[in-house]
Nucleic acid binder design. Structure first.
Lengths: 185, 185
DNA sequence: GTTTAATATATCGCTTCGATATATTGAACT
DNA sequence: AGTTCAATATATCGAAGCGATATATTAAAC
């Protein structure tokens, strides 16, 4: 999905500045299926303004550049929903962590130990975080955010179980190779 | 991870042409954590050749451009493994399917039904595929591919359970909105 | 008093993606 | 026998996007 469309997806939920759109991609439900940095958001939202998909109100501030609050228009909504009516295609998953594990037998055992230990802590924290959201905000009406929350919890739990289970084997493979001095770079 | 490094990751497993590197990103274990199209592989591998990270042997063919078989060098291995010793960062997950579901109440109920039904069939097929690989090739020595396989199976099973469970609610939300004629684009 | 984090906007160059072009072989179908 | 289709194989180009960086202020934390 291009950044222009994901920005419209944020704006359909309410008016926002470029900075606030960015935050939506970094935290909250959007972070689980979309992204975009400043370097893509600002040009994308500017490109959406000229054909009238969004409007921009400048909100003056003292000693600071004017805050630009963007609002979606009917044309913007139309663009968003017609794009969503196209084939979504496959999901994409990218992981430098799994990429590194693939070569565990050529990397130092300490490093493998470190990244797996860190990852386990990360997943535990993320699960806790997603479980807590439930107790505070979620209700049955907002089905999509609930689905995304469930998906996150299930995914992190699965990964946690698998890497906890295989941790010792990966470290053993790395140590084993160090003793043999074959693939070591 | 940049394409040059992921290409080196494929070549460390054995010599390959650009076309074969592409196939590794599309099918097999690499597809679960890395990617790259022709448009990025060819320039990346060419850029890796000049400093000597890979060597290229031209294999002449009749009535066809010469096949270029790339092989990794010690320098290439060093580059790969030193890159893998850096912080892998967070995993990335992108999904136009979840993006569309987020606006289910503004999309036609038939469309929501269609994409969920398709996705359920897709996940079932992918699970079957990953389970079958086990029976044919996998052994306990190749820990990383096994981990990736397990991760895939667990992930698809989790998603399958969640979307099967929520399917009716999503369609109901879409139908509900059509009756109210509010958000309909 | 100083440092750090958060708010806020924006640009620039390098990388990467998607679409497209070209050409041949072999299998499958009619 | 002829045709179509999928796979093999290489490669380019423009559009899009990413990461790093720059600037500036406020408020909280130490």
């Amino acid at each position: 999905m291009d950044v222009k469309t994901t920005c419209l997806g944020v704006l359909v939920m309410g008016n926002a500045t470029g900075y606030e759109i960015r935050k939506a991609f970094e935290y909250g439900p959007f972070a689980h299926f979309a992204d975009g940095g400043f370097g893509s958001i600002y040009p994308a939202i500017a490109k959406a303004e000229s054909p009238g998909m969004v409007t921009c109100k400048k909100h003056k501030q003292q000693k600071r550049p004017a805050k630009k609050i963007y609002a979606i228009t009917d044309m913007g909504r139309e663009h968003l929903f017609s794009t969503l009516k196209k084939d979504p295609g496959e999901d994409k998953f990218r992981s430098n962590f799994l990429f590194a594990l693939y070569y565990a037998d050529a990397l130092p055992a300490e490093w493998i130990d470190e990244i797996i230990t860190k990852r386990i802590a990360d997943y535990k924290q993320k699960i806790e975080c997603l479980v807590n959201i439930n107790n505070q905000y979620c209700d049955d009406k907002n089905i999509a955010p609930t689905l995304i929350r469930h998906k996150g919890i299930e995914y992190y739990k699965a990964m946690l179980g698998i890497i906890s289970n295989k941790k010792d084997k990966f470290i053993a493979a790395a140590i084993d190779n160090r003793n043999n001095n074959i693939k070591q770079p």
